[in-house]
């Protein structure tokens, strides 16, 4: 039997099944928190830090990622305060400066209100969100991909960079990768990157995304219904 707890997210009183994360609950009820490394069905590691929220306890608020935070009775969460908006903006800015060549990352940056990137662009091919690694390990138990290296040298690699036969060719890593869709104007050349800021791209598998995001004014608020199933209107 499912046990329910009552949580308060942005003032909405929500009955949520025990054991689910704040991010899942919020999305389910139409309060969209931007996120990158979270994929429904895969474990959450809190790597991208985009889904940060403020958890208010006894008048003190603490910044934490909503994907790893499990709901508890009486929990008070704020997803869109000025503080969170500023921090999220800065994280999205770091991400887009690192990998401007992805529609998904460009989209996240725009949604988080990035209008100007204050760092030199870098044009990486990977933002180390770990979607592919977890999908490979947790869905097919193939373990054909993993993280290698530390800090700046961290990258995704096959086991020992040679065991190709581990791969079961499910293509799930490619489907989930936020780097696979280039910006509308085509791939940017190194040294010519820019913040395009025009389009709405797809972060999740195509079927789950409605045609457009009419409910959401870009870059402000995240009440978007891209995870069809808008249950509570704030």
């Amino acid at each position: 039997m499912l046990h329910y707890v009552t949580v308060n997210i942005d003032g909405a009183i929500i009955k949520a099944p025990k054991g689910s994360s704040v991010l899942e609950v919020a999305i389910e009820y139409g309060i969209c928190i931007p996120h990158l490394c979270h994929v429904p069905g895969l474990s959450d590691i809190g790597a991208c830090r985009l889904c940060i929220v403020e958890r208010v306890t006894n008048g003190r608020s603490q910044v934490t990622t909503s994907c790893t935070l499990k709901v508890q009775e009486g929990m008070v969460i704020r997803t869109n305060t000025d503080r969170i908006k500023r921090l999220r903006h800065n994280i999205a800015e770091l991400l887009v400066a690192e990998a401007p060549n992805s529609r998904a990352i460009q989209d996240i940056a725009v949604r988080c209100g990035v209008k100007k990137v204050r760092y030199p662009f870098r044009n990486s091919n990977c933002v180390l969100c770990g979607r592919c690694v977890r999908a490979c390990a947790e869905i097919w138990h193939a373990n054909a991909l993993g993280f290698v290296g530390r800090g700046k040298n961290r990258h995704v690699e096959r086991p020992l960079n040679m065991r190709e036969e581990f791969c079961k060719q499910c293509d799930y890593c490619i489907q989930l990768c936020p780097m696979t869709i280039p910006p509308c104007d085509g791939p940017m050349k190194p040294g010519e990157e820019y913040l395009c800021g025009k389009c709405e791209s797809q972060l999740m598998i195509t079927e789950e995304v409605p045609d457009s995001c009419a409910w959401c004014r870009l870059g402000e608020g995240f009440n978007c219904g891209r995870y069809a199933g808008l249950k509570a209107v704030r």
Binding site: A47, L94, L95, F147, G151
Partner: peptide, 18 residues
């Protein structure tokens, strides 16, 4: 710290780097 950061989360990996 850049050498010793595990590189898992964005603010630490990219933030220290920047």
């Amino acid at each position: 710290l850049q050498d010793e950061s595990c590189g898992m989360c964005v603010p630490c990996r990219l933030g220290i780097d920047r």
